[in-house]
Design a protein around this nucleic acid. Sequence first.
DNA 1: TTGTAAGCGTTATCAT
DNA 2: ATGATAACGCTTACAA
Lengths: 332, 332
Amino acid sequence: MATIYDVSVLAGVSLATVSRVMNNNAKVSEKTRQKVLAAMEELGYRPNTIAQSLASNRSNSVGILVSELYGYFYSAMLSGIEKELRRAGKHVIIAAGHSNKSDEVDGIEFLISRSCDALILHVEAVSDDFLIELSKTNTPFVLINRQVESLSSNCIVLNNEQGGYLATKAILEQGHRKISYISGPLWKRDAQDRLTGHKKALADYGVAFEEPLFVESDYTESGGVESMRRLLQKNISFSALVCANDEMASGAMSESRAQGIDLPNELSIVGFDNVVFARHLYPKLSTIEYPINEMGKMAAQMVLRNVYDIDKFDLQNLFEPKFIERDSIRPI
Amino acid sequence: MATIYDVSVLAGVSLATVSRVMNNNAKVSEKTRQKVLAAMEELGYRPNTIAQSLASNRSNSVGILVSELYGYFYSAMLSGIEKELRRAGKHVIIAAGHSNKSDEVDGIEFLISRSCDALILHVEAVSDDFLIELSKTNTPFVLINRQVESLSSNCIVLNNEQGGYLATKAILEQGHRKISYISGPLWKRDAQDRLTGHKKALADYGVAFEEPLFVESDYTESGGVESMRRLLQKNISFSALVCANDEMASGAMSESRAQGIDLPNELSIVGFDNVVFARHLYPKLSTIEYPINEMGKMAAQMVLRNVYDIDKFDLQNLFEPKFIERDSIRPI
DNA sequence: TTGTAAGCGTTATCAT
DNA sequence: ATGATAACGCTTACAA
């Protein structure tokens, strides 16, 4: 592999000059620039990025920590990040945190030891205080899906409350008044917010929130079937169901059908997240779109701007969900 | 950040000795080792991986090229790769090739310029000759889902023919004899192989392959609905349908239902790939499992063994699919 | 077993 | 505008 030295010899200039034309950050006469370019071309020269990093103290790489590599949600996020970063010539190093504290901490240390210029983190288990401490080190980061007050300008979040509101509103507008709700685990902020939105929508339409129609679950499909079973056992009627995510909606749909309920005629259902299989369900699930790909893209732009001083982006911290109408809601 | 120099001073030894205990590749007396370890601990020393790479000409990183970051298939593959590599202290750099030649070539060059020690490639557009040329450079690679004869020991592939065989066999065993087939694009090797398996199964059961029951499509959901429409228009009856992937099966199911066909009673369907939404379909789709996560893991092990000389793995090039029984096939 | 010192391929600070 | 040359933090002969 040709080095900068080979180029300088062939072009008959110094190392420094070659470096200058590569980074074009200093004045080089057009004539020598051409000589150098020609030499590079002839040698098929490729700068050694490792050496560049060592010398410049910049790795041009950003570390990404996601909970899992697997699945629609994270892959959409990664895809948004990678595309944007790659376009700017940066690259991504990826680690998984598996939603537990020690893996998350390990992952972060790993990424830092890899000399990442910045981090994009989707962490769940680590504490706010840990993140605040981390912000005092010299590796800047942005947080996706996590709101830490004192770091808020580096946080990118979805307006979950609004999403919860929209889901329930869509149901209410079709005339439903007896509406059950399957929630995510309430220790999670997003589950809380979605529920808050739900309640607000009910209030706006003058419908009382009824405790018996509510069940807290765990965001999984099996949680959905179990919750549906519980709801049905109570023997109180309801014509619609809002689920705090699509997984649970899928479970609830299976269980409903198993119990002989005709979907969507006897029961309207709405989900949340718009995961990929939502439109493969039967009936096709109406749900709330979670623009995670966009949010990943924004995270990338945020580091491009804050860390690499590429100033052409408008930054945005809060993303708005929107309602996706399909076939799972019927007027009453 | 503390450097190896700081450690050596504090421990009262030379740089070289510190390096030796880090890499424990040379004899160091237990006493000095302890001194060094203590010094590292005290300083919170973290080796600078960039400098290590430059000096050792090893980056401890492996480049991954996938067609897309987005979606279950690739995320499952990445997840398998990352987990295995990370455990060995290597890390992954990821690029996307978008199934087109120029992006694939760019991606590969990008990864090489990042000094990856090895590559794991899932490429579709690039030619065999290109890959053969690439194998002459000094960056070794393994190929997932691609068979190149002269590189076969570095190829990891699924036995697609066997998968096609199993899918059709499952249908045949339920007594079906009029079986239609929606194929993937036949310029793709996997589509060919799956079809070959299908034909072989038919032959084994003494059923003739009938051209009118065959349609070539494109592996997409909309291709599935369109193909189903074409099949139905022909007005020849069939009691079962095998689809060369789950996407098309999903499309075919929607279209069938739209045309008033009662699934699975009037039509049995089998898919291929076992993508995540397969079990969310209604009826839950019986399909062929594609162990892509395992294959990713194997790719990582291959690199670990061939490039990093970690010798504890049994390598395997061919993976066997298996039939997943769910609710979409009924006896005739 | 331990130390010395020459790289690794760049960048960046001085001079010129 | 260009050239020397000292870092950057580590590995690895070669000596001792």
